[in-house]
Design a protein around this nucleic acid. Structure first.
Length: 734
DNA sequence: CGCGTCGTGGTTTTT
DNA sequence: CCACGACGCG
């Protein structure tokens, strides 16, 4: 067997990981160390050298993107040898695979065959209704909090009956909502994300024959991003592996940034204990960043305790030092970044080689405004995803009703969208009736139209709705998926409804709806992140499409190929890399965020987030912070983040503006603005302290325009920042 | 039912 | 400060 294609071009550690004995292994893969590569080559090794059938391999990831990438690269690496048999391998997300198990064993689980997946939006709506049903005051018991509670319990594998009651009234209320919610899900055949995992776990735990089947089928399990597994995922994996299954766990404890939503970094250590004979391999050679960037990252993360220990290194160049810029305020910071991008692009680089990373989404606004002012194309990641959009969810709700009339969440969503005279009053009456009868809203509505439970007008409207759905169903029989979508949009008048919406919003929504039809046309069940078994022939294309829409929300935005600056939070940057990275707002209280300062473990997670941020940069990293930042309406003076202080000074070069104006103490010397915007010839300078007869003292933060129209933005100590026309402002240096 | 006003809350996000 | 949701009026 010629193993060279599998082992060539791997470094020693990678090779060791790929060719390790077919046993349990833990691969600690540092940022940019070729993790996916190792995973993919490991699978190839198992198949070609260890002669493991692809049929016996399961590979689990967290995101659909990662699953798709893995499958793609796998097919690329051994497409020929496998001759299409990659399909028999299970590659997917935890949720996708759990879904597949539930679909295969719906009868055992006492689920309706076409159970629907509840996304977090649907979940929240449902919880709201449960709370209302329990007569709870929404301000005292915020549905969001209940949702958080329920999901946290499910992540820990806890059903209501297993939760220890503490006698705490708050817990009691949350539990009551949880119970009501579970009942509603059971009645409606609804399964939320946590439930998918929980059920998949229970399926194996409670059915020895089924467990034995899967244990035999999958003697080899591979898990990506192991540091992100939560309690239930870990438990599921452990059950599935049993005494004989071999697990390759790949992850990086230093990049664990999802503890706040249940990920258990400890699972890595537990894995070493719970699974026998674990060989641990570290991938520390980095192929992404320059030496100084890696040095900075290593020093920052070294401040965390309890690490498994890893140090990135490169045999590449040291590269440029990290640039550090002290901005006056967030506007100045944004302008600085934009200026730098301009210069970078002037040097022949592309816009999409630049990423601006920030801790919280609120920071993006100022940055966007600055980019907009410069007419610079940008793309924000992590916005609303395609299948999460209101208009799309409405359309999907209609399509769900075609599959299952008893889907209450779907009815709730569209019974009066577009408006058809079924007001809140009527809906509430139907809900009440349904609750009394223990039936679905659809059944209740049908019943009430035929009896005289409703006013003539309401009965008319509800009857029309029922007729509409039935007629739509009829019209869609035997139609292709895109035709079903198209017919739905037209017959329900959704398209019309949004077309009549005023403003650009309606326009965008119509376009999205048209895009939905395209998505239906392009839908290929064989090309999913987690493809269904070939033996699920009973499931209609429509059902598969709907399931996929719930499990894979689609990329947040199109225009992937535009040359645009990339904006995103540090969290969503994980796994990505960019030649030029700007980390903005690196200040105490913002990053680390002030909510984390009290708790050492949360603070360490912030530090890992910083580590993730630094290691995104390939060529040049620029860190900036603002000495003054407007947050929630008032001015904040934050100190530079402790994380910056953890970077060795030889890795950093402070950016200073060339200027000879004296600065008041406390302000870093200003640097590098674009020259025409610095108020030349006005006797004033950016960053200068000035006095205004009415507003008092402040600092100049912007210049704009020339001559008579020249304006200046001054950040006044007591009045906030204001734009003034220079000619009339009568500013004197302080 | 649709629009306006008031009040509140405001890390991070995938599935 | 600003965005979103609840509530009340025409």
């Amino acid at each position: 067997m010629d193993v060279s294609p599998i082992l060539d071009n791997l470094n020693e550690a990678q090779r060791e990981a790929v060719s390790a004995p077919a046993d349990n292994q833990l691969v600690l893969a540092g940022a940019g160390s070729g993790k996916t590569r190792v995973l993919v080559h490991r699978i190839a090794w198992l198949i070609q050298v260890e002669r493991v059938s692809p049929y016996s391999i399961m590979a689990v990831t967290f995101t659909n993107k990662a699953a798709r990438e893995m499958r793609g690269r796998l097919e690329q690496l051994l497409g020929d040898t496998l001759a299409g048999r990659t399909r028999s391998m299970w590659v997917g997300t935890f949720h996708g695979i759990a879904h597949r198990l539930l679909k295969a064993h719906w009868q055992v689980l006492k689920l309706p065959q076409n159970f629907q997946i509840l996304d977090s939006d649907d979940q929240l709506r449902l919880i709201k209704r449960i709370s209302q049903g329990l007569q709870l005051d929404e301000t005292r018991w915020p549905p969001r909090q209940a949702q958080w509670f329920i999901n946290a319990q499910k992540d820990e594998g806890l059903r209501p009956d297993y939760i220890q009651e503490t006698g705490d009234p708050h817990q009691a209320t949350m539990l009551a909502i949880y119970r009501g919610y579970e009942e509603a899900c059971r009645r409606g055949g609804l399964v939320d994300f946590g439930e998918l995992l929980l059920r998949a776990h229970e399926l194996l735990l409670n059915n020895p024959d089924i467990l034995a089947h899967y244990q035999q089928r999958f003697p080899f399990l591979l898990v990506d991003e192991f540091q992100d597994t939560n309690t239930i995922q870990y438990a599921w994996l452990r059950v599935l592996a049993g005494a004989t299954g071999k697990v390759s766990a790949v992850g990086d404890d230093d990049q664990s940034i999802y503890g706040w939503r249940g990920a258990k970094i400890e699972n890595i250590q537990r894995f070493q204990h719970d699974f026998g004979n674990v060989q641990t391999i570290r991938l520390e050679q980095n192929y992404r960043s320059t030496g100084l960037i890696l040095k900075a990252a290593n020093h920052v993360i070294a401040n965390n305790t309890g690490r498994l220990g890893k140090e990135l290194w490169t045999d590449g160049k040291d590269g440029d030092p990290i640039a550090l810029y002290a901005a006056f305020n967030e506007q100045d910071e944004a302008r600085f970044i934009v200026d730098n991008i301009n210069r970078w692009v002037d040097e022949g680089n592309s816009f999409n080689s630049c990423a601006i990373l920030y801790r919280s989404n609120a920071q993006s606004r100022v940055l966007e405004e600055a980019l907009l002012r410069e007419n610079m194309a940008y793309r924000i990641y992590g916005g609303q995803r395609f299948y999460d959009r209101l208009e799309i969810k409405n359309a999907l709700a209609y399509m769900r009703l075609l599959v299952n009339r008893d889907d209450d969440t779907a009815i709730e969503r569209v019974i009066n969208t577009p408006t058809r005279g079924i007001g809140n009053k009527t809906i509430e009456t139907i809900r009440l009736f349904a609750r009394e009868q223990g039936c679905s809203l659809w059944q209740a509505a049908q019943n009430m139209v035929n009896s005289s439970h409703l006013s003539a007008r309401a009965a008319n409207a509800v009857g029309a709705f029922i007729a509409l759905i039935n007629a739509l169903d009829e019209a869609c029989t035997d139609q292709t998926l895109p035709d079903i979508a198209d017919t739905t949009l037209k017959q329900t008048a959704l398209l019309e409804f949004h077309r009549n919406e005023k403003g650009e919003k309606g326009q965008a929504r119509v376009e999205n709806l048209e895009e939905l039809v395209n998505a239906c046309r392009a839908f290929d069940p064989n090309n999913l992140a987690t493809p269904a078994d070939t033996d699920t022939g009973e499931t209609s294309l429509l059902v598969q499409f709907l399931d996929n829409a719930s499990l894979d929300a689609g990329e947040s935005q199109a225009d992937e190929f535009d040359d645009a600056v990339q904006l995103m939070t540090l969290h969503s940057a994980k796994g990505l890399e960019f030649p030029r990275v700007f980390m903005a707002g690196v200040e105490e209280n913002l990053f680390p965020h002030k909510m984390t300062l009290e708790d050492p473990s949360q603070l360490e997670e912030e530090r890992r987030l910083c580590y993730v941020g630094i290691t995104r940069a390939m060529v040049q990293l620029t860190i900036s912070y603002a000495e003054s930042r407007r947050m929630y309406g008032n001015e904040n003076h934050n100190r530079i983040s402790r994380f910056v202080r953890e970077i060795p000074s030889e890795c950093i070069q402070e950016v200073r503006l060339k200027t000879d104006v004296q600065r008041p103490a406390g302000f870093a010397t200003r640097t590098n603005g674009s020259l025409q915007d610095q108020g030349e010839g006005t006797g004033l300078d950016l960053g200068q302290r000035v006095i205004h007869s009415i507003f008092g003292e402040g600092v100049i933060i912007h210049f704009e325009g020339q001559g008579n129209s020249a304006r200046v933005q001054v950040n006044f100590d007591n009045e906030g920042s204001k734009w003034l026309v220079l000619q009339y402002a009568n500013l004197t240096p302080a």
